[in-house]
Amino acid sequence: MKRAFQKPGRSREYGKALAREIDYLGLDSVAIVGIISLFVGAVVTIQTALNLDDPFIPAYYIAIATRESIVLEFSPTMVSLILAGKVGSNIASTLGTMRVSEQIDALEVMGVNSASYLVMPKVLASMLFNPVLIMLSMGLGLLGGYIAGNLTGVISTPDYLLGIQLGFKPFYITYALTKTVVFAFLITSISAYCGYTVKGGAVEVGTSSTRAVVSSSVAVIVANYFLTQILLGT
């Protein structure tokens, strides 16, 4: 694994590989992240509204609660878990197939550091692009809440717009993005490790892809606990 982070050879080729991975691992996930965020934002708003159905609690509290759930937890953690499933299995099966069909050996014989050529662009692409996805998710989550509030009438538009701005702490964004970057690193490096070290054939490639998703999801959940304690801990 250490070899994966060594200095690459021809940087232009690594640049091209990075662009390809951003396209493949990042842009390709925009749709799924968008749809999920929109609907979860809507659901969170409705549920919060039902739970805070008390005349003594101002309506804009619903929007505050929605905002905090999305920014602190849903977008960085849940979306990262979804990406662990999508991106993790993709990375493990791609690298696993390259391993068992000797494509990795072919790279090595040519004198290419296969670990760094194949793994590093994927890790970097996710660490760079997942924050963009998460910001998008936050935006669309809040939009989903806005639409749901409008459609169901659980919260009025002015209350919602007031609530999502009230007492907003910019540090929460920093916190969310820090988590995102750490999760992206965990997901891609664990999955790459699972795929890169496959021995055997098609069956083992499948197994490694499952193992990649399970291990990286667990890693995300555990890391989430510690990061929360470190960054928000009192």
């Binding site: 080729e13 000797e102 072919a106 040519m110």
Partner: peptide
């Protein structure tokens, strides 16, 4: 140069790109 038992072509690249790969790299 090595020719593997199973060819080991890079399956995400075209025929042309496969042959060009070492030239791009080195």
């Amino acid at each position: 140069g090595m020719v593997f038992q199973g060819s080991a072509l890079f399956d995400s690249l075209t025929v042309e790109e496969n042959v060009m790969f070492p030239l791009n790299m080195f």
